[in-house]
Amino acid sequence: MPVNEHVMVFAPTPRLTVTVDQPSEAPELHLHPGGQGVWQARMIISLGVDVVLCTALGGEVGQVLEPLLVSEGVDLKTVVRDSGGNGGYVHDRREGARREVVDVPGEALGRHELDELYNLALGEGLRAPVSVLSGPHQPHLVPAELYRRFTADLRANGGKVVVDLAGEHLAAVLDSGVFFLKVSHEELIADGRAAGDDEDQLARAMYDLHAGGAENVVVSRAAEPALALVDGEVFEVEMPRLQAADPRGAGDSMTAGVAAVVARGGDIRTAVRTGAAAGALNVTRHGLGTGRLDSIRGLVERVRLVPAGSRQQERTTPDELADRAAER
């Protein structure tokens, strides 16, 4: 594996996903590894970049997950759990929309398991130009302090850290500083970092995140164009509208696209455009973190970074501009 072209993905709490589907007369059962880090790793591989996936597996679910993870094409590095097992969910998609049947969060990692996983992932992260630190399914499963130390150690040794986190885990990595942060506008509001969802308020929150330790920031906004803070300027990420087959997973694919491009030495603007294309393509498919490389490349050419506020200015009529000038 080329030293300068792979990504370390830290996925402490992978999950088993079971989906019941019925695309024809007979129902189908699909078993896959899941969780934020797994979905990110899957998209990075789709973009042609190798992945070292560092994780902890335990219990019956962990035994099922291990061969499934290997089949994803990652270089799997594992810590065997003694204190508990991994979680997962069962979804019924036979009527089109997903209906949750059961969701098992799994058990928190013990102190010994955390130490072993930290050492394992740190060693692999020091060999990679880019490390993606994925969050746990639920905050209590992995302490935020581990993310703070991990980020600090990677950055101190020249690594670029990419994250999609919220809450106390986001606060922890900001203390150490990250190269790239992706966060949703709902998460910013829930964390008290933004007062509302209008562009000005979100832009202020992005500048605060930048001042707090995030070098580059992308804020996803559901159906609205994402906002990107790059090189000290806020942009709208403008791209073609695509019909969604499954709206989940766009944010993880966006984060993965950024990590893949940066690992290959690409610039941050190209990385954000690639991430946006990967996220948009992912929602046209039923598999999370999936997408064809040629299709993503085709979409990248259609993604633009437009200075924030310019679209509103373009929508202003000449009469309105004349009225504003007269008022001045």
Score class of each variant (00 low, 15 high):
residue 199 E to W: 14
residue 20 V to P: 04
residue 22 Q to K: 15
residue 242 L to G: 11
residue 206 M to N: 00
residue 88 G to L: 00
residue 186 E to V: 06
residue 186 E to W: 05
residue 16 L to D: 02
residue 116 E to V: 13
residue 250 A to F: 02
residue 272 V to P: 02
residue 248 R to P: 12
residue 275 G to C: 03
residue 246 D to P: 05
residue 236 E to M: 07
residue 294 D to K: 12
residue 133 L to F: 05
residue 312 Q to C: 11
residue 222 A to W: 14
residue 310 S to K: 15
residue 126 L to D: 04
residue 210 H to L: 14
residue 239 M to T: 15
residue 118 Y to S: 07
residue 318 P to Q: 09
residue 189 I to F: 04
residue 28 E to H: 15
residue 51 V to H: 04
residue 76 L to V: 12
residue 284 T to E: 05
residue 41 A to F: 05
residue 131 S to I: 09
residue 267 D to I: 05
residue 39 W to T: 03
residue 82 D to W: 14
residue 83 S to K: 15
residue 126 L to E: 01
residue 125 G to I: 00
residue 193 R to L: 10
residue 110 G to E: 05
residue 275 G to E: 03
residue 144 A to F: 06
residue 267 D to F: 15
residue 86 N to Y: 02
residue 295 S to Y: 14
residue 201 Q to K: 12
residue 243 Q to C: 14
residue 256 A to L: 05
residue 325 A to S: 12
residue 91 H to G: 09
residue 74 V to K: 00
residue 256 A to C: 07
residue 83 S to F: 14
residue 9 V to M: 08
residue 22 Q to G: 10
residue 253 S to P: 07
residue 220 S to Y: 01
residue 213 G to W: 00
residue 217 V to Y: 00
residue 282 N to V: 05
residue 99 R to W: 09
residue 179 F to E: 06
residue 309 G to H: 05
residue 318 P to I: 06
residue 23 P to H: 12
residue 146 L to V: 11
residue 298 G to H: 11
residue 162 V to Y: 01
residue 61 V to M: 08
residue 139 P to A: 07
residue 76 L to S: 15
residue 109 L to R: 04
residue 79 V to D: 04
residue 71 S to W: 10
residue 258 V to L: 06
residue 30 H to N: 09
residue 258 V to R: 01
residue 239 M to K: 15
residue 1 M to Q: 12
residue 25 E to Y: 06
residue 151 T to P: 01
residue 80 V to T: 10
residue 74 V to S: 01
residue 29 L to N: 13
residue 35 G to A: 08
residue 181 L to R: 00
residue 23 P to C: 14
residue 45 I to D: 07
residue 184 S to K: 10
residue 326 A to K: 13
residue 202 L to N: 01
residue 94 R to L: 12
